[in-house]
């Protein structure tokens, strides 16, 4: 019996020298092993970026014509008087959305973890409700909020305010309010993602840390500031990187909620890029803006990464 077991395990486990041989081959000749990944990344990620970079230095248009290399598109985009407004909108929209999603996500995650620890009923339902907003497509999100924010006499929120004797609010026709409305819609949809990431991080915290803090007589805010936050710091930073990139690329909810208006009040960089290509047929200008968007996203991701603990970047 003993002999039989040892024989089976000896067949199932790769021999150490064979394993070392494969590792050795991979280390001495890594290219064949990396080739599939290089091909996939090159074809599906790198090539489009390089092509956008190439197009940025041409006069390419969706209406065709001879393609000539020039700096005209770059110059036209960078001197476009609308660009500062669009970049300002993007900064406000992204910063407010990221902060809002992080804070709300953290709040809900803390609530759920605390509820689960105390065996409160309904925690699963709460998580599901928050997640429901996340699975709604961006365009549908915009349509839903446009019905809620509608300033028509039959608009949902204004009608409700009217029943309470409150004057109607210019949710979408006032430039300032329109930006706030767009941010609310984006936070509503994006909070679930932050909640999931932070919830997972909270569940990973060693309970003995809280028990030790309780023994030491730490107050709740002290436990939050000196145990919870440091323990989920990495998750918060990674979450911040992901939702910043996601928010920078968001235009579907904006286009269906305000179309970028009134005027340019809610036109963010991704929507400006989309309009440049699909409304103005300016492929070169759109490529320049795509590169600007990529550079901003990379710069912000790099900035966040500086705060990651060493060895976890």
């Amino acid at each position: 019996m003993t002999s039989s077991s040892s024989s089976v395990s000896a067949d199932a486990v790769p021999r150490p020298d064979a394993k070392a041989g494969l590792m050795g081959q991979a280390q001495s000749h890594p290219l064949p092993w990396l080739m599939p990944v290089i091909v996939v990344i090159g074809a599906f990620y790198l090539y489009p970026i390089l092509d956008a970079l190439r197009l940025a230095f041409t006069n390419a248009s969706l209406t065709g014509g001879e393609e000539v290399y020039s700096l005209a598109a770059l110059r036209a985009v960078l001197t476009n008087p609308a660009l500062p407004t669009v970049l300002g909108n993007t900064a406000i929209f992204t910063a407010a959305s990221v902060v809002g999603q992080m804070l709300l996500g953290l709040g809900i995650a803390l609530l759920v973890v605390r509820g689960e620890r105390n065996s409160l009923p309904g925690m699963l339902v709460l998580r599901t409700i928050v997640l429901a907003a996340w699975v709604v497509p961006g365009v549908a999100n915009g349509v839903i909020w446009s019905m809620l924010f509608s300033e028509a006499p039959f608009g949902a929120i204004n009608s409700t305010l009217g029943l309470m004797g409150i004057a109607p609010v210019s949710w979408l026709s006032s430039p300032q309010n329109a930006m706030i409305s767009v941010i609310i819609a984006n936070i509503w949809q994006g909070t679930a993602f932050s909640m999931i990431v932070i919830y997972a991080a909270l569940k990973g915290i060693d309970e003995t840390l809280y028990e030790a803090a309780a023994v030491d007589g730490a107050l709740p805010w002290e436990r939050f500031a000196f145990i919870t936050l440091p323990q989920i710091k990495v998750a918060l930073l990674i979450n911040a990187i992901l939702i910043t990139i996601q928010t920078l690329n968001t235009f579907d909810a904006v286009i269906s909620l305000t179309g970028g208006g009134p005027g340019r009040a809610t036109e963010v960089l991704s929507l400006f890029t989309y309009n440049t290509v699909f409304n103005n047929f300016d492929l070169a200008g759109g490529s320049v803006l795509s590169i600007v968007l990529l550079v901003i996203a990379l710069a912000l991701a790099g900035l966040y990464a500086l705060f990651l603990p060493r060895g976890e970047k």
Binding site: S174, P262, R264, N275, D282
Partner: peptide, 16 residues
């Protein structure tokens, strides 16, 4: 289309 886009923007700015 590009001219129209600018007119849409300016009308929105005036109306708001």
């Amino acid at each position: 289309p590009e001219i129209s886009a600018q007119i849409q923007v300016l009308i929105g700015e005036v109306l708001s």
